[in-house]
Each structure stands twice: as C-alpha cells, then as structure tokens.
Write a protein that binds this DNA or RNA. Structure first.
Lengths: 239, 239
DNA sequence: ATGTCTTTGTGAACGCGTGCACAAAGATGG
DNA sequence: CCATCTTTGTGCACGCGTTCACAAAGACAT
C-alpha cells in the first residue's frame, strides 16, 4: 500500500512531463474559446497570454506532443484542440461516480464543467438511506450498497469522493476493489491506495491556509523591515 | 498587470520554500488528530506516514521552521501544532467573503473546514437580487452592490470567487480595488491580477482531465507492453 | 527566385525540490 | 560517568521544470 498521492518516480508517460499534462487542460480551455470565436490560428504568444503562462513554456509543452505549429504563422486552433483532446483522452466517454451527496457532492453533480468534456455522471451514491431515490441534478441518488454493482455495470474507472473525512478511506477502498483506478478526493484526509491507482486531492481548507500564510507575510513585511529579516520571537516561546 | 497565478520569482518568504508551505497544513491536520488523542510526542517517521510524505522531507520541512524536535525522542505534538499554526497565520482571525452563491458557493458556505481554523465567513455575496436576504448556512446573502462596503467594514483580505466564469474577472477586480489581496478562485478562468495579489485556483474540470490522461495511459499500457516500453502509436495518428 | 520578416522548436543553463545517508545530539540504562 | 541506542538535522547529489536565447523554418512581398 503506497500512501498518499501517487508520486511515482519518473511519471513521464510517453515523454510528457507531469507539469505539462497539468497545463494541457488550461490550453484546451483557451483554445476552445478561440474556436468558438472562429479564430483560425493563434501564436504561442497570444495563446500563452490567454492561458496565463510563459510563451516559451507553452511552446516547449506543445513540442512534447509533436510539431503542430507553423513557423511564421502559429498554431491551427482546430487541429490543436483535437490533438490536446486526444492526448488527454477526452475523445472518449468517461463515466464517473460521485460518492457522498452532501452540499459539496450536490454542487459537483450540478457542475456543468463535468458533463462538458467527455465526463458523464454515471451515478450519485450516498450512505444515507433517506437520500435514496431523491433526484439531485436530475439523477436519482443510489444507496452505497449498490456501489460495486454500479461501478462494474457502467465500467466506471474514475470516482469522486465528497464524503466526510471519516468515511473517505473506506469508500476509497470499496471503489478500488470494484475496479476504479482514478480518484478525485475532496475529503480532507490522506488516502492510502495501492500502486497503479491515481489520486488527486482538492482541499479547500489547505488552499485557504496557504493564502493565509502569504497574507500574514505581506502584513508582517512592513514591520519586519525595521530590525532585519528575522524578527525575535522568543516572547511567544513556551517552556 | 501580471497574468494568472502569482509565480513570483524566489517566493521564499523568510527562507520557507513554497513546497514546504503547501505541506504545513497537511502536517497540522495530522498533528491535530494526534493532539485530540492526547499523544504527547511523535517521531518524524510516524508523522510522515500520517501525512503521506517521506520522513526525510518532513524533517527538512520542519528544519525551515527551526529546530523543534528532540533527538532520540521526536517532536512535541502540542508545541508543533502551535508553531505551525503561528507560521501559517492561523492564530489570528481571517474574515473571508464568498462571492457567487450558486451550488458551489452554498456548499463552500456550509463547509465546516472553513470555520474550523481561524477562517470566518464574514459575508456571502451574490449578484442575483432574488438571493438578497435569503440565509445560506445561517448567513444572509447580500447583494453585489454592498461588496466594497462589506470588504472595508470587515477588513477582509481574503476573497473566494465561486461565480460563473464570465463574471469572475470583474468580481476579482472589484475585490482587489476594495482591498482584498488574496483570492481563492473556483471559476474556470484565468484571473489577471496586479503584483502583490495572490491567487490560488481550484478547478474541478482540470483535475478530472488530468486523471483522464493517466487513465487513458493505463488503458493503453497493456497494448504497449508487447514491444518495449515505447510502443509505436502511429496506427492511431491521423494524417 | 531571392530576401526579409515572423514565429516556431530546442539546446543549454540555472534553480528548486527531493531523497539518501550519515554525523551530531540527546535519552536511557548500567 | 560511560556506553548504547534512537531519532533528528543536514550536506550532497540528482532530476525535473523553467527560462533564455537563437537557429531553423516557413510565409510573404517584390
């Protein structure tokens, strides 16, 4: 059992760096917007600005996918949309299940971004019997007892966990046992998963705490300038 | 106007690497759990396992904060909880506003993790006049017109954006003009912010797409195993 | 056809983050 | 007081990711 996020050594699959993969959806979004405005081609500079990254980085990212640009002109928008979609596996249909239909789970079920790009909410699952049958976002909630059957019947390989922290690990294990190999975890816990299972974590509280750190630093910066960078903190030190 | 996430060069504030800052909340959570079970001390090995990281990494992370451990024994749980809380700025109260009270915004307002650690939801703001006054999570929703007044009256420096993508940039600019310097963005857009403002992005759709990429790779792997690690993919290449 | 101009693709250097491996430090027992 | 044992703190090497800077490639005008 490997613990936590899958930090596989040398994650490079077919030579595409993980950092690049993480940016592809960003490019894809910008390109889709251009495509809807019927823009035929775009330069690395323009696209980089739209995606909020450095243009050299963007070109290097694309170079991992192949040489899809034309020098002196730029990139063909439609072609690039197709190539990135294919690379990300969005040309196929990905059924997902959402487990834990509380406030967050319901919000996820209603989130339009899921359905938009190849992802289909195959089922909503909750442990509360009172929820069973109740429709959320037009999909009836099913009870946890059905979990294994739902996964195998629909060929689900991606699961979303939005349960309370206490239930997450157990749900995770059941999902994996039933055949799920990718998990998006919203519960504030570290999940232990076997090798070969990918976990991505979204933790609202952690994001806020990171912001608080920087915020505090900004606030303390003017005061710290007085007597050097390392203010004396001995007053607050306990015995 | 810098575009996108604030990738400040040399983000190290007081010598604490950004990667370490991102893990501190993880350690804090594990330590809090230990504290509640009245565990007095913990070794780097144990704590690392609980947080899902390498023990060497954890020790190096703590070394940036100072020498808070005792060789041969481990770390004092209570003391470490205090030190990390202080470092993250969680010993003070952070009022936050949530702008955009749709499904996601409501879920965030109800999320317990916000209130738990020094974060207080000062106000919920929505552009829909029909929402005004309606209580969500016990807090009455206020109209966007009040945004500037709310920010300055409450001394808010952290804002959460959970509006549709189209409204995000405009909301962002109003927040910043009113005094907000840290933003947690749930809208699927790249935000342009001036220097000195921190933006963190949470994008559900992007996380799913990254999972899909790895999922697709796994699916293609068995086929690729036949003739070496770098399977020839020309069959699926379009003209 | 040739020259100019634009934009891509990439070699190379640099910096950050990670993990190993070990010395130093302190606890504990005799 | 000394020896042993545990666990921290860190020097060092390595690899990934980012960025610069430029040569190669192609479009386009003349």
């Amino acid at each position: 059992m490997a613990t936590g996020r899958n930090h596989r050594p040398a994650t490079r699959s077919r030579g595409i760096p993980e950092a690049t993969v993480a940016r592809l959806p960003l490019y894809l979004r910008a390109l889709t917007a251009l495509s809807e405005r019927s823009v035929p081609t775009v330069s690395s500079e323009e696209l980089a600005a739209a995606a909020g990254v450095n243009s050299a980085k963007l070109r290097k990212d694309f170079s991992y996918l192949g040489s899809y640009g034309t020098r002196g002109v730029g990139y063909d928008v439609e072609y690039l949309v197709y190539q990135i979609s294919r690379e990300l596996g969005l040309t196929q249909d990905w059924p997902v299940v959402i487990v834990g239909i509380g406030n967050l789970g319901a919000a996820l079920a209603n989130y339009g971004g899921f359905a938009s790009r190849g992802f289909r909410v195959a089922a909503l699952i909750d442990a509360d019997p009172a929820m069973a049958g109740k429709p959320v976002a037009g999909i009836p909630v099913q009870h946890t007892d059905e979990l294994e059957k739902i996964i195998s019947d629909n060929g689900v390989s991606i699961g979303v966990i939005s349960t309370p922290a206490g239930a997450a690990q157990q749900v995770c294990e059941r999902l994996i046992a039933a055949g799920v190999t990718s998990i998006l975890n919203f519960a504030p816990t570290v999940l232990s998963v076997p090798d070969g299972v990918d976990v991505r974590k979204v933790d609202l509280s952690i994001e806020l705490q990171i912001l608080a750190f920087h915020e505090q630093r900004k606030a303390g910066e003017e005061a710290a300038t007085r007597r050097g960078p390392d203010g004396d903190m001995s007053a607050v030190m306990p015995a």
